[in-house]
């Protein structure tokens, strides 16, 4: 498969004990859901794909993104975005500066970058929020800002680490729909790990159970 995220015989072990083994192709716009109880190695799997696996783990197999083997590539060169269960907005930066941190560097000039940030905010119904302190945003607003921050970096794949588990029930379905739809319209392969069946059902794709 030339496009999308391919995990080829990916196996992670800790001191000789295998934790996770996964072989999967995620085409652009599709969602793979990995489910399992806590401690089953879901986050470890994502760490292997982002390239932040702690050194005591050993990794076999390959992560191939759009035909390129990224298994040994530095995290910042992989262009794989990730959303955690916490919004992880940088608390010392304004909403706009958080987005500008994600925005690709080839958009040059202060005005152009500011305009891109403003447009992104407007896209998720947060026009005029650029100078706000992220700590003053509601849970749903924060989730939307972190989604936009990922997209501005123009990733080639998106990972979700229990991304919706901390939102309350009503908001969760809404934010989830927004993330899935945005990923689909951007043609992003998505891998989500979760222990919530509703996340899996809503995604509609393949479900892998650890």
């Amino acid at each position: 498969m030339d496009n999308g995220l391919c995990l080829q015989n990916l196996a992670i072990s800790l001191r000789g004990r295998e934790l996770v083994r996964l072989n999967a192709d995620i085409p652009p716009g599709q969602i793979l859901t990995v489910m399992g109880p806590s401690g089953s190695g879901k986050s470890t799997l994502l760490a292997a794909i982002t390239g932040t696996l702690p050194r005591e783990f050993s990794l076999a197999g390959r992560v191939v993104l759009d035909g390129e083997d990224v298994t040994r590539l530095a995290t910042e060169r992989r262009r794989i975005g990730i959303l955690f269960q916490d919004d992880m907005l940088f608390p010392h930066l304004s909403v706009g500066a958080n987005l500008a941190f994600g925005l690709k560097a080839d958009i040059r000039g202060q005005q152009a970058r500011r305009a891109a940030v403003d447009a992104a905010l407007a896209d998720v119904g947060l026009a005029g929020f650029a100078d706000r302190d992220p700590a003053t945003l509601s849970g749903g607003q924060k989730a939307r800002v972190s989604l936009m921050r990922v997209l501005l970096a123009e990733p080639r794949a998106l990972l979700l680490d229990e991304a919706f588990s901390k939102l309350d029930a009503e908001l969760r379905a809404h934010v989830r729909r927004l993330v899935f739809d945005t990923a689909a319209s951007n043609g992003l392969p998505v891998l989500q790990v979760t222990h919530d069946e509703a996340d899996a059902q809503d995604a509609g794709g393949v479900v892998h159970r650890l």
Binding site: T50, A74, R77, R79, I82, K104, R149, V150, A153
Partner: peptide
């Protein structure tokens, strides 16, 4: 992880 996944 987040910052480097954003390309930093």
């Amino acid at each position: 992880t987040v910052a480097r996944a954003l390309g930093a």
